[in-house]
Nucleic acid binder design. Structure first.
Length: 262
DNA sequence: ATGGTAGGGCGCCTA
């Protein structure tokens, strides 16, 4: 049994309902995980997505900020929704698919501007969020599981457009990369995207603020697909659909895809 | 060191 999974920070699921529908139509992943829906769950335009074959959804939402959702062609049952660091934010939802695979969808806090928890509370919350993720997977060892989302960290030198310039920029600092590695180690997670595409620069996000995003190409790989070792070997055909960043009124993130043969 | 662009929802927070 084979299925395709995608993760995409949509930056408002209601404003970009049409872009979600376009991705569902043109690429048709079996499971689509969204972050930054910026919508209460009951205002997500579920009916249009159901008309495209995505009959199942698990989600957490709030007005204006954050929000995570999993749309699926196969049945999915909610199994967890954690509020790490007790921020009261909708940043995690987990569901078990009818094929037995558990999917964790995360929107990790961005962390503010200054990479110093003494002067920037948000940076401390980001590090603490990652620490609680680590502890969660230590206490709940994942099996047959996939972890996706906007983790707001680009861990490798070739996950950013300029490693040295970004070492002091939130998303690529050493302390963040170490915290993310601890989460990965705690669940024995395999970075599926980089197992599949080991060499070369790879980005999933380009700032709205930088003009001419495509030519300048000042990107970062903030969006990730991980899997536990029992299914990671079955993953293949990973890709970032960069062209989506160039669609009309786009999200600043491009979707990341992987296929699994179970 | 600063400001640059977006979304939500209407003054300003967040990314």
């Amino acid at each position: 049994m084979s299925f395709t999974l995608a993760t995409w920070n949509i930056n408002s699921v209601r404003l970009r309902e049409g872009l979600v529908a376009r991705l569902m139509t043109e690429e048709a992943p079996d499971v689509l995980c969204l972050q930054e829906c910026k919508s209460p769950v009951d205002l997500i335009p579920l009916e249009q997505f159901q008309a495209l074959g995505y009959h199942h959804m698990v989600a957490r939402g709030q007005k204006g900020y954050n929000g995570v959702a999993i749309f699926s062609k196969m049945a999915i049952e909610e199994v967890a929704a954690e509020d790490f660091v007790s921020l009261g934010h909708a940043r995690h939802i987990a569901g078990k698919l009818e094929n037995g695979v558990t999917v964790h969808n995360f929107y990790v806090p961005a962390g503010g501007d200054k990479p110093n928890r003494e002067i920037n509370e948000k940076f401390g919350q980001k590090l603490d969020y990652l620490t609680e993720m680590r502890d969660y997977f230590r206490a709940n060892a994942p099996e047959k599981s996939i972890l996706v989302g906007d983790l707001n960290i680009a861990p490798r030198e070739d996950d950013v457009w300029d490693h040295k310039k970004l070492l002091k920029v939130v998303s690529h600092t050493t302390v963040e990369v170490e915290h993310l590695a601890d989460v990965q180690g705690a669940g024995d997670w395999v970075d599926v995207t980089r197992a599949d595409i080991p060499d070369g620069n790879l980005y999933s996000w380009w700032s709205y603020r930088a003009p001419d995003w495509d030519t300048a190409d000042k990107g970062r790989r903030l969006d990730h697909i991980w899997a536990t070792p029992d299914i990671a070997n079955s993953a293949h055909s990973s890709r970032v659909i960069r062209a989506v960043r160039g669609w009309e009124q786009p999200s600043d993130h491009a979707p990341v895809f992987a296929m699994f043969d179970l």
